[in-house]
Design a protein around this nucleic acid. Structure first.
Length: 484
RNA sequence: GCGGCGGUAGCUCAACGGUAGAGCCUUGCCCUUCCAAGGCAAUGACGCGGGUUCGAUUCCCGUCCGCCGCUCCA
């Protein structure tokens, strides 16, 4: 729970400490994971485009989430709801009211206040004053802060109906509760899961892809009998924590943090955050660091009670409840919601995997720094790279054959350009767990060397059955070699 | 949105009131070699707009973008 190992700037250059956000941003751009969006036009604040490896990595993160939610159990079904929904959805959810308060800023003290609550608010000055009451106060005009993106349905703006881009995927699940109940043959406890884009006009986006105005969520609403809500809440806390651990996040960099009473959302009776210990922004050569490591939220797990179904029942006039044939009971299920950020999880996996080490050149005592992403093989964008040692003597031809076989099973690359060491390092930087090198011996005995990303160890392995062997290794249990 | 700092090739840096230079990276060719150190060549930058000036990447203003703090959340 504590961050002692990483809050101490003098803790030395253990491999876990070298990462900074600057390095992640630079690597992301250098290797084509993530680019600032609209760059050729000067950029748009806090929007990002995912490049080739970023798409593969993020896709793997989502796949792993689906694996836990769908493949490994039979009480959760999937849905993919529309981004544009009926405006009443957001009245019922509370977003339209809660997201549109007029606010004023004070230019003197820098604080922000609800414009309609000035008379009751204290502005922090002594003796206690209301905002605007003292001579130094310099309040701005009241402005509407609508955190939802607004658009118009219909091509003529003036005559169209106002609609909102969804600020969360959860509501798309609640409004489909009836549909799913009818067609999925499920009864509580059961869940509905969704992955998709959401949009919020954040006041202060930033921290790379950590907080953006357009982001992707992985949300699951788990509907349970009211008297079981607490136990399922605890269950999902553990399940979600296990998910991060199994995908290689170092346990001492992950924690569950229960919300205080005053932090709770309007809809929640209990919420815990899954937090990751993110590194500082940058560090200079002298070991001084700008910013401190900071616990930040990857995921919120909330007990939403019956708030959502009750509200939608009220606003829509539809019955949103479950009738238990066995007991003759009719009730509104309570909801446990693990709501995770895809981009945040992806960033955390990148950060946690980042490592640098010194590789000595044989016998010289000198060497090079190696940058490597120690990603769980299942998360790695590319599972295997096929490399002919030299690009002649029939090696490229055999390598192409191996590549064709391997890529039939897993994401694989072929590369014959430049020195072999350089190609290994390129693969290290994108986290490829296995490099398959074709050499002169390969041509006579149909074997390759398999080079391990983390240990650099090489072993000789037969080409026949190679693709299956790679697939087996990718799916084997894995633990990060990085020290805690 | 407010306050502080910053913006020169993909990256790390340099110089300068007289139209920018290096290393690394990348690409091509040669070499053929199991961990980025070989040879030859090439691509490539003053965030954007305005002002001062004979002349602005340099000085001034605005704007955009980024980082740090306030606030919010996945």
């Amino acid at each position: 729970m504590t961050a002692s190992a990483n809050t101490n700037p003098n803790s030395g250059a253990t491999s876990g400490d070298v990462v900074t956000m600057d390095k992640i941003v630079a690597l992301s751009k250098r290797r084509g994971f993530v680019f600032p969006s609209s760059e050729i036009y000067g950029g748009v604040g806090s929007t990002y485009d995912f490049g080739h490896y970023g798409v593969l990595l993020k896709g793997n993160v989502k796949n792993e989430w689906w694996r836990q939610m769908l493949q490994e159990r039979d009480d959760i079904v999937a849905i993919d709801s529309a981004i544009l929904q009926h405006p009443r959805v957001w009245e019922a959810s509370g977003h339209l009211a809660g997201f549109t308060d007029p606010l004023v800023d004070c230019r003197t003290c820098g604080q922000r206040f609800r414009a309609d609550h000035l008379a009751e608010l204290a502005c922090g000055r002594k003796p206690s004053k209301h905002p605007g009451e003292t001579e130094e106060c310099s309040l701005t005009e009241a402005r509407d802060f609508n955190l939802m993106f607004e658009t118009t349905i219909g091509p003529v703006k003036e005559s169209g109906a106002t609609a909102y881009l969804r600020p969360e995927t959860a509501q798309g699940i609640f409004i489909n509760f009836k549909n799913v109940l009818q067609f999925s043959r499920k009864r509580p406890p059961f869940g509905i899961a969704q992955v998709g884009k959401s949009f919020r006009n954040e006041i202060t986006p930033g921290n790379f892809i950590f907080r953006t105005r357009e982001f992707e969520q992985m949300e699951m609403e788990y509907f349970v009998p009211p008297d079981q809500a607490r136990e399922w809440f605890d269950y999902w806390l553990k399940e979600r924590e296990r998910w991060y651990h199994e995908l290689g996040i170092r346990p001492d960099h992950l924690r569950l943090r229960p919300h205080d009473a005053d932090e709770l959302s309007h809809y929640s009776s209990a919420t815990s955050d899954v937090e990751y210990l993110f590194p500082p922004t940058s560090s200079n050569g002298a070991g001084l660091r700008e910013g401190e490591p900071r616990w930040s939220e990857l995921e919120g797990i909330a007990n939403r009670g019956d708030f959502d179904l009750t509200r939608h029942a009220e606003f829509s006039g539809q019955k949103l409840e479950y009738f238990d044939q066995a007991t003759g009971e009719r009730y509104v299920p309570h909801v446990i919601e693990p709501a995770a950020g895809v981009d945040r999880a992806t960033l955390a996996f990148l950060v946690d995997a980042y490592d640098e080490e010194f590789v000595e050149r044989e016998g010289t005592g000198e060497g090079e720094k190696r940058t490597v992403l120690r990603l769980h093989p299942r998360l790695a964008p590319v599972k295997a790279a096929v490399l002919p040692l030299v690009s002649k003597d029939g090696q490229p031809e055999l390598a192409r054959e191996v590549h064709r076989a391997v890529r039939a099973r897993v994401q694989a690359e072929y590369d014959e350009g430049g020195a072999i060491g350089r190609r290994y390092r390129r693969q290290d930087e994108i986290g490829t767990p296995f490099c398959l090198t074709i050499d002169h011996q390969s041509l006579t005995d149909r074997s390759v060397t398999l080079r391990d990303r983390d240990s650099l160890a090489q072993e000789r392995i037969a080409i026949d059955g190679l693709a299956e062997e790679i697939e087996r290794r990718v799916n084997a249990p894995w633990k990060t070699p990085k020290p805690a």
